[in-house]
């Protein structure tokens, strides 16, 4: 396996930055997320970032197009993404899996979301294996291999003081070619993942939910929920959006932005009716979508076990407990 000392990681990133716009997991302003690589950024390799990389592909607010009224007609103007390839370094298996989920939603079933596709096509990924899961991690229970990510161009392995690199795709081979001179060949093995603290058994949960729409557990599960959107906004797989516009005189900008099924106005209809009037219906929808509707449609769970929702929930509404409750329900 080709390896590099962690201490020399920045040399490699510097080389890659000549070719790509490199994004790295870093501490910033008392939180952590993927940011543009510069020599002085505080890269974190020992834990996953608090905010998932989903905004690289699906920004919280994304301008779609502009309109301008000219006398009696209207002019449309496309908004194009910044040119050039991006390289996302250090994406964990859970977050790579979430891209797999996104791909299903935005690129399959006969519809292509161009905004997503443009961004997705311009990003090369270097996934990074996890040596020690965080306490809130449960990816293996969701069928994710923490040592080998799906869809990565390059798979990197955490080998203690070194990082091992393995090209997976053709794009990945190009990346390795660029930095080959800075890597050494060593007989390293794919590391074994550490023990998970959270134990979850999600087998059969999707099928079990088929008959549980009216189950009394939703009353119980939802009671403590505050209906804030923290879980949905930090979730790497939540992908709901709302389209809105900014009108300034004759100029209109259409944009889309993240929405959350936890919010009342999410299902508010024009006539005033709301089919999900209380927290019970909203919480039920969140878990049904993740564990039943999505698997039904795309044959995969809409949860990658990253544990971010558990981390941020103000009231500790824990999805692993909900899964347990579903499985134990009559």
């Amino acid at each position: 396996m080709l390896v590099v000392l962690k201490a020399k990681l920045k040399d490699i990133l510097n080389t890659l930055a000549e070719e790509y716009k490199v994004l790295v997991p870093a501490k910033i302003e008392d939180t952590s997320k993927f940011i543009s690589y510069k020599d002085n950024v505080d890269i974190i390799l020992d834990e996953n970032v608090k905010l998932s990389p989903k905004d690289v592909f699906f920004p919280q607010t994304e301008k779609m197009y502009k309109m301008k009224t000219v006398k009696t007609s209207m002019e449309l103007e496309n908004i194009t993404d910044e040119a050039g390839k991006k390289l996302l370094f250090g994406v964990r298996s859970c977050d790579m899996k979430s891209l797999d989920c996104f791909d299903q939603v935005f690129l399959t079933k006969g519809y292509i979301d161009e905004f997503y596709k443009n961004k997705r096509d311009s990003v090369v990924t270097i996934a990074l294996s996890c040596s020690q899961p965080m306490q809130t991690c449960f990816c293996s229970a969701m069928g994710v291999d923490s040592q080998k990510a799906v869809g990565a161009d390059v798979q990197a392995y955490d080998l203690g003081d070194k990082i091992g690199l393995e090209a997976i795709s053709d794009e990945g081979s190009k990346v390795i070619e660029l930095i080959k001179g800075q890597l050494t060949e060593e007989g390293a093995e794919v590391p074994q993942p550490g023990e998970f603290y959270l134990k979850v058994d999600a087998d059969g949960v999707s099928e079990k939910l088929n008959g549980m729409f009216e189950s009394p557990i939703w009353d119980d599960v939802s009671k403590k929920c505050l209906n804030c959107g923290a879980c949905t906004y930090v979730c790497p797989t939540c992908h709901c959006f709302d389209i809105s516009q900014e009108v300034r005189g004759e100029n209109v900008t259409k944009y889309r932005c993240w929405d959350s099924c936890m919010f009342g106005e999410y299902t508010q209809m024009a006539g005033g009716h709301n089919p999900r009037p209380t927290k019970k219906e909203r919480v039920r929808n969140r878990f049904m979508h993740k564990l039943n509707y999505f698997p039904d449609r795309y044959n995969m769970l809409l949860c990658t076990g990253c544990g971010r929702c558990i981390n941020v929930c103000p009231v500790n509404l824990d999805i692993t407990s909900v899964i347990k409750q579903i499985k134990e329900a009559e």
Binding site: Q60, L226, G229, T232, F263, P314, V315
Partner: peptide, 23 residues
Amino acid sequence: KCLRCYACRNVCPACNCKECIFD
């Protein structure tokens, strides 16, 4: 960096409006 998840508002005992202006 605010995500506008409204957790601060929803957890607040003083934020008890029937319908919040931001909704």
